[in-house]
Design a protein around this nucleic acid. Structure first.
Lengths: 277, 277
DNA sequence: TTGCTCCTCACGTCACGTGAGGTGGC
DNA sequence: TTGCTCCTCACGTCACGTGAGGTGGC
């Protein structure tokens, strides 16, 4: 007995077969509001879907295959026009590209760890005096730190010619320990310059504090920087030198601007206590 | 007051800074047994790590960055020799490659869905008589179906010259509805042949049952096959033709052997009821 | 009557993260 | 005394999957 004049209704099983989404998944999408059945029998709770919902199910499946979060898929389906939808899709594809790049980094980093000859690290003690600089400071999440770092360095470097500043040392960064311990903390990137600069955008004038540091030189991609941190940190601990304070990095030459991260040279500074200082 | 003669012990915070693993993560790895602190103070529960654990932490971090499951990482760290470890790593990298390929498929499938001109599907009714065939049958999970399908077809095709069989029709497959509804179900791939063949390996002799089918032709990658399923299924439902039974596919020409999946031609058969049959 | 499809809880999975509430040493 | 580090629960997150136990129509 069909209600005549109504559009064809599909049971959840039929709709599942057509859409290649499991029954459990369809019920879950109903619950979360991502894809509501076109009608529900109030007597027994049976869900019914309409033919018109097939294209939506197809789009949802593809986006979920691409690991787009359900809330993002919902936003996309609710977007007002094709332009907005395409922008959201493009943004997600970019995120996938970034993921892929990170994966590639991790693979080569793993190979590096396995193959690398574990050479003895040379560690130098250095007293760094306070230095005037221009810098950008922020509280960042660890997962965003690389993107933030790139952007901040770009902005910072543009400021040198823009304000006619004279650089007096290597580009560097300060990283609070919370960044490693809680995946979130204060980070600062800076370029030492002569005199006081104007604040423009995120860039401000600041003084990089003095420090007693144990310094090790890291060569290659920053994806492997934890290896150098590990050797330096265990050295500092072994000799009971560690004190509180942000970790420091100096990017020698023009490391961050070279595409081939294999040639990067970074000095890692670990804050220490020196009886003789 | 240090216990003299003991190796240097690091607090969880120090070890976190050195390894770039969060304190929460380190506690979690202790709980799951992936990385146990070298000692725990029984009085206050404080965890202490040794320097010797730093390399393990570095390996763990890289493998987790590559989304290797914790249990797999554990197995890897417990592997007896470098050969076994390398094999596990290589296997995981292969899985990553497969993931990447699937992602690429999903991206092009999404573009396809957005760009494709939605042409009217031509649907044909066909009575298929029973047919002797060689086939491979299994209960498979949906996520494994593509890999299973490729392997089974390869094995099946090798059997034709090996047993000197004469092919009598197109290669095909039968897919139980559970495969779509519960992500797991029976699948069969077959090649119709003359006479009865010997069972070798997974290959057995079988009779593909007769069926009344509504047939639509799908052109292009099977990543998009749900589009054709969608149109065919909604057609069958609209005309109240659907009956229970496995879905059927016929791979025309030599589709599965061509690298360029864009040129594949697949017939999709939907089981129907025919009053006139 | 059997088998199939549908339903609703309630709980599990995976790898942690988020707080709340408390301790202990400098 | 304040601030920092450490601790243990207990619960949350994300996108479902897994059962248990039950209904309803052919």
């Amino acid at each position: 007995m069909e209600t005549s004049g109504m559009a064809t209704e599909l049971t959840i099983g039929e709709f599942s077969r057509i859409s290649h989404l499991s029954v459990k998944t369809l019920r879950h999408y109903h619950e979360t509001g991502l894809l509501k059945p076109s009608s529900v029998n109030p007597g027994n709770g049976y869900r019914y879907y309409s033919e018109a919902q097939i294209p939506a199910a197809q789009v949802i499946r593809r986006l979920r295959d691409l690991e787009m979060p359900v809330t993002a898929v919902k936003a996309l389906l609710g977007a007002p026009d094709a332009g907005a939808r395409n922008a959201l899709i493009a943004a997600h594809l970019n995120r996938l590209e970034d993921d892929l790049a990170r994966t590639r980094e991790a693979v080569s980093s793993l190979r590096n760890l396995i193959d690398r000859p574990r050479t003895q690290l040379e560690i130098e003690y250095r007293s760094v005096p306070p230095a005037r600089a221009i810098g950008i400071r922020a509280i960042v999440d660890r997962e965003d730190v690389l993107a933030w770092w790139r952007g901040a360095l770009g902005e910072l470097h543009a400021m040198i010619p823009a304000q006619g500043l004279r650089r007096t040392g290597s580009t560097g960064g300060l990283y609070a320990s919370g960044l490693y311990q809680h995946d979130r903390g204060e980070a600062t990137v800076f370029i030492p310059v002569e005199g006081v600069a104007r604040s423009v955008g995120r860039v401000e004038s600041l003084v990089v504090p003095s420090a007693e540091l144990a310094i090790a030189t890291h060569r290659g991609s920053l994806a492997d920087v934890d290896l150098t941190y590990g050797e330096l940190g265990s050295y500092a601990t072994r000799h009971e030198l560690s004190v509180a304070g942000p970790l420091r990095e100096y990017y020698l030459g023009d490391s961050p601007h070279t595409v081939d991260s294999g040639t990067w040279v970074t000095e890692i500074g670990w804050p220490i206590f020196r009886a003789d200082a």
